[in-house]
Each structure stands twice: as structure tokens, then as C-alpha cells.
Design a protein around this nucleic acid. Structure first.
Length: 427
RNA sequence: GUGGCCGUAGUGUAGAGGUUAACACGCUAGGUUGUGGCCCUGGAGGCGAGGGUUCAAUUCCCUCCGGCCACCCCA
């Protein structure tokens, strides 16, 4: 019986790495442009953190966590999402003493026990950002803009942004009451799945996929009609900020969708979601919202915050679907081909070349033809050929593999060859 | 967690209840003496796992494992 990788996990082979580099470097770049700084938190945390932070009632906590007891008897859990950990770190490290807001980003694997599907895995990776300590709608707009720029810079097109406001928790009581009354008034028309949902998570009835529910949901009470006071001001200020984005990003647009709700308990006010126009089942590329109550829930001082998470695997899926051009991985600058008894000389040369900062690979000891083919398949820029002749005369043949295939004679020492390769620009 | 479709070399595919399971790409070795990419020839490599039915199973049945689709949920 051979070993297989655990269900829902993936080996990321060298072939796929250009996509990952592209994602990582774009994420880093955009985060930096907005003044966000990287934070890394542990891969596992106290189980309690997620139970409190993500919400005891959520599916994530109820049935998707990888929890285990360690040898000391503590219950730990592989991080299912990023926000709770970042907030814990914010509190624990006294980041409320830093200038507010604290702008943070992370890129890390997440773990959820789910049934795998395209775009849904048991281990996946997220790029996420959090702006903690500023209630201003300007920060909401900043986060949304950052998400937009990230997706645009990745080279993904045709993405739609939907936003909504859930209002504040206390103001939501009225809304939830009316919503509940509304759906119960039409309970006969609801499929059983949505009747259950009505008990479990009434908001989620709004984004049901059942056709008959959608019709009802369209006419259902809207949270935007219930928000008032600061939440309302906040919402309208946000829309204004978003309007100001349009001249800068010609493709930028958004759609207010009163049926947009999010699955995690901690959200309030602004929620938003980016997805491809032709999204299938697991289409959401990036999603987030404001979570002002969370830090208080986790034992910190009441601190407003907002952020998003985005799935890297899903971005790659979309990049492939759109056949986006990604910078390919490059081969070594030099492959050293040795003939006859020149193996030792070749190895020493390789060492010298690397010391000179030139990436160098020694071809496997096979026939010359095979070594040349190897160099070609490695995408090498040049080969250095060393045979008995070269060892005697002290002059090596350096052949450019990229275009011309032209060959020159260069003194057989690392410095000369490094200089030659650099000067030809074929690195 | 529920329902459905699927599982043949590294990858993509073809295939019949019964002698050596096919093709392409890839890998590898050659195509005279020390030069890659194109071309030609050879080679290695496979029926996801375990049971069952049968004289005989890779093919039929069951279980498990895995992938995909819808739901659930979510990034």
C-alpha cells in the first residue's frame, strides 16, 4: 500500500510554483503599497480562540475544525481562518499601544475538515489583511480598494464586487425579528432546507440557492432599511468613498446586494465579496467585512476593525481559467557539461561559479548529447563545455542556448566565465 | 454531512469476460569520431486498494480510498 497525501490536500510541484510566486509577490506588493505590514501567527491555537472568535454556532466550529489534544492535555486547533489569530496577537502583544489603525496582512495555510471539491480544500492558503483600531468608513473603502487592486494586479478580469451593511448588533434585533416574521409568514413556500436555516441562521435564508426562496428573499426586509444613526452615516460615507474610486480604477464598480450576508458570526456593518462573473459553486475569491465586536469578544478593549480573506488556490484556478500570462520560472544560468576525465574540473568550476553568484548546475554524467539535452530541458541559458582538450589548453567553450546558439572560447576559470555570461546578458 | 458521476503508464486518452493492454506527449538510450531544440529507431513505466462472482477479471458485483459535480458551507 502506497502512501497518499491526505484528502483535500495538494502537493504544489515546481511546475505550479510560478503561479504561487505571482500570488505571493503581488500580495506583498499591494499590501506594502497600502502600508500593511506582515504578521505571522502560529498554525495552531487554543481551540477556545476559534470557538469564541469565529462563533460557536458556525459550521466551521461545529464540524470543520481540526482539533486535537496535545500531550499536556490542552485542546488545540489548526487555524481554520486568519482573523481570530490576528486579533489575539493584537491583544496579546499590546498593539493597541501602537499608532492606530494597525495595518496587518498575512499569507498562511488554513485547515478545515470539508468535503473537497474544485476550489475547496482541507488545507488551503489565504492572503488576508486586517486594519484594526479605526472605525472610519474610509478604512472600509481602503480595504475594499486593496482587494480590488490585488485582484487587478494579479491579472484577473471580470470580477464583481457586492457589498451590504448588516448594521450594528443592537440595531439588528429589530431587523432579525421582522425578517423572521416575514419568512415565517411564507413558511409554506420555503423548502425544508430553508426552514431549518431559519432556525439556525436566519440571515442565511437570504442567500439561499433555492429558486423559490430567492423570490421571497428579493422582497424580504432589507438590513439597509433598518440601519440608523452611526451605522447609517457610516454606510453612506462608505458609498461616497467608493464612488471616488471609480475615476482612478476605470473598471471598478460595485453592486449593493441586500441578500449578501457572511457566514462568520463576528461581522457587523460592512460586508463585501468579490467573485468572478461566471462563478461556479465555490467561486468567491475574496471576502470580508467589518468586525467591530470581535476584539471585545476575545477579551480585549472594544476595538473597531475590518479585513478580508482571499483564497490563493481559487485565484490560481481563476488565473488558469482566464489563461493569464504568468512569468515562467527561469532555469540556471549555466549548466556545466563535462567529457572524459574532466568531471573534477567541472565540479570545481561549478563551485566557483556559484561563489561568483552565478546559478550553476552540473549535468549528469552521461553522453555529451544527453548532457546537452539535459541543459536544454532545464531551460539553462548557457552551457560550459569542458573536455580533456579544454583542461589542457585552459580555455572552455561557452555556448548560449537561448537564441543564437553561438559559442565562444573563454578562459577556464570561474571569474572569466561568470563575467562572460553576465556580459552577454543571457542570465 | 447528503446525493450523483468517475478512477487504465508521469500526463492526456483508446480498449475487450480469456494468448505479449494500445496511442500521443513526457522520460531514457542510440542515429560513427566532442554540441541541445526538429526528425528517425529502441527501452523503461500502468489497469487506485481489498474482497466476491466465474474455469478465467483490468472488464461484472460489494466495500474502502481518491477526484469531480450539486447541496451544505466557504476562501
Amino acid at each position: 500500500m502506497n502512501f497518499k497525501r491526505p484528502r483535500g490536500t495538494a502537493d504544489i510541484l515546481p511546475e505550479d510554483q510560478p503561479y504561487w510566486s505571482h500570488i505571493y509577490s503581488t500580495a506583498r506588493k499591494v499590501a506594502n503599497q497600502f502600508g500593511y505590514r506582515r504578521i505571522d501567527t502560529p498554525t495552531f491555537e487554543d481551540t477556545d480562540l476559534f470557538q469564541r472568535g469565529v462563533g460557536d454556532e458556525t459550521d466551521i466550529v461545529q464540524k470543520e475544525m481540526y482539533s486535537f489534544e496535545d500531550h499536556g492535555g490542552d485542546s488545540l486547533t489548526l487555524r481554520p481562518e486568519g482573523t481570530a489569530s490576528v486579533c489575539r496577537a493584537y491583544i496579546e502583544n499590546g498593539l493597541h499601544n501602537a499608532p492606530q489603525p494597525v495595518r496587518l496582512y498575512y499569507m498562511a495555510p488554513m485547515f478545515r475538515y470539508e468535503r473537497p471539491q474544485a476550489g475547496r480544500f482541507r488545507q488551503h492558503h489565504q492572503f488576508g489583511v486586517e486594519a484594526i483600531g479605526d472605525p472610519s468608513p474610509q478604512v472600509d473603502a481602503e480595504i475594499i480598494e486593496l482587494g480590488w487592486k490585488y485582484i487587478a494586479d494579479l491579472g484577473i478580469k471580470g470580477v464583481t464586487l457586492r457589498i451590504n451593511s448588516l448594521g450594528d448588533p443592537d440595531g439588528r434585533v429589530d431587523y432579525l425579528g421582522d425578517l423572521d416574521r416575514y419568512f415565517r409568514g411564507a413558511i409554506d413556500q420555503l423548502p425544508k432546507i430553508d426552514r431549518d436555516r431559519l432556525d439556525r441562521a436566519p440571515l442565511r435564508v437570504l442567500d439561499s440557492k433555492a429558486r423559490e426562496t430567492q423570490v421571497l428573499a428579493d422582497a424580504a426586509p432589507r438590513s439597509l432599511d433598518y440601519i440608523d444613526g452611526e451605522a447609517k452615516e457610516h454606510w453612506h460615507a462608505l458609498l461616497e468613498h467608493l464612488e471616488n474610486l471609480k475615476p482612478v480604477y476605470p473598471d471598478f464598480s460595485y453592486k449593493v446586494d441586500h441578500r449578501l450576508v457572511r457566514g462568520l458570526d463576528y461581522y457587523n456593518r460592512t460586508v463585501f465579496e468579490y467573485e468572478p462573473v461566471d462563478a461556479g459553486g465555490q467561486g468567491t475569491l475574496l471576502a470580508g467585512g467589518r468586525y467591530d465586536p470581535l476584539i471585545g469578544i476575545l477579551g480585549g478593549q472594544e476595538t473597531p476593525a475590518i479585513g478580508f480573506g482571499s483564497g490563493m488556490e481559487r485565484m490560481i484556478l481563476e488565473l488558469k481559467k482566464q489563461e493569464a500570462q504568468i512569468a515562467p520560472s527561469t532555469g540556471p544560468e549555466i549548466v556545466v557539461v563535462t567529457l572524459g576525465d574532466s568531471g573534477a574540473t567541472g565540479a570545481a568550476l561549478a563551485t566557483g561559479l556559484r561563489a561568483a553568484g552565478v546559478s550553476t548546475v552540473l549535468a549528469p554524467s552521461r553522453s555529451m548529447k544527453a548532457q546537452m539535452r539535459y541543459a536544454n530541458n532545464q531551460n539553462a541559458a548557457n552551457v560550459v563545455i569542458i573536455g580533456d582538450r579544454e583542461v589542457e589548453t585552459g580555455v572552455a567553450s561557452v555556448k548560449n542556448l537561448v537564441d543564437s546558439g553561438e559559442q565562444s572560447e573563454v578562459a577556464l576559470d570561474a571569474t572569466s566565465i561568470a563575467a562572460h555570461v553576465r556580459s552577454t546578458g543571457n542570465q
